[in-house]
Design a protein around this nucleic acid. Structure first.
Length: 190
DNA sequence: TATGAGATCAACT
DNA sequence: GTTGATCTCATAC
């Protein structure tokens, strides 16, 4: 049974941790989530920190939706909105372990190495075909499917990547030891 | 292996 | 006018 939108109504950090190992598919293409980062409204690094704007409108809406924005004027980055309505917290999808639709992703990305298909927010969106068109879409409606993980996973914790504000916060979560991370976690981090 | 430039857009100063 | 939750490609060691 796929995870519904109300599954995202809880605490963003618990959800970030719980998302590791779940399988995200877009139109039958995707893989296991191996790396995410948590952002909250009281977080200076979050887009929602300074209040609602046309771009961040989705973050302030109901949980279980997808917040997509353009990064550096070039790449798309996808988040899953968490928490109660209006809390404006979200989980940034940073890396997947490709499991389904490899050929499709290789075609979209123009590379063959599975480790390079989804290891990074921009790459992930390109591989799955996520664009600004998908902003505000529900995670539990086609073409999106989020399958719960089967069994326990070893979740690593570390500092977030590529930001300058609140950069010391350990709000990056990942599957320990996975070769599909955008960057490895420090050994022993938990 | 490492550093640097370019792409290109919304929000902020 | 500057900055940023990025990535690719080129050039240099």
């Amino acid at each position: 049974m796929a995870l519904g939108a109300d599954w995202f109504a809880g605490d963003v950090h618990e959800l970030a941790r719980a998302l590791i190992g779940t399988e995200l598919l877009v139109g039958g293409v995707g893989g296991r989530i191996v790396e995410v980062e948590a952002y909250r409204q009281d977080d200076p690094a979050s887009h929602s920190f300074r209040g609602e704007t046309p771009r961040t409108r989705t973050m302030f809406g109901p949980p279980g939706r997808i917040y997509v924005y353009r990064s550096y004027g070039l790449h798309w980055c996808a988040n899953l909105v968490c928490g109660p309505v209006g809390e404006a917290s979200a989980v940034l999808l940073r890396a997947l372990e490709p499991t389904r639709g490899l050929e499709e992703m290789q075609l979209r990305r123009g590379v063959d190495d599975p480790r390079l298909l989804c290891s990074g927010p921009g790459r992930l969106c390109q591989a799955l075909g996520i664009t600004g068109e998908d902003d505000g879409a529900r995670i539990d409606r086609p073409p999106f499917v989020l399958e719960p993980r089967s069994g326990e996973v070893d979740v690593a914790v570390g500092v977030r990547i590529g930001i300058t504000k609140a950069a010391e916060q350990p709000w990056r979560y990942g599957l320990a030891g996975s070769p599909y991370l955008s960057r490895p976690f420090s050994p022993g981090a938990r």
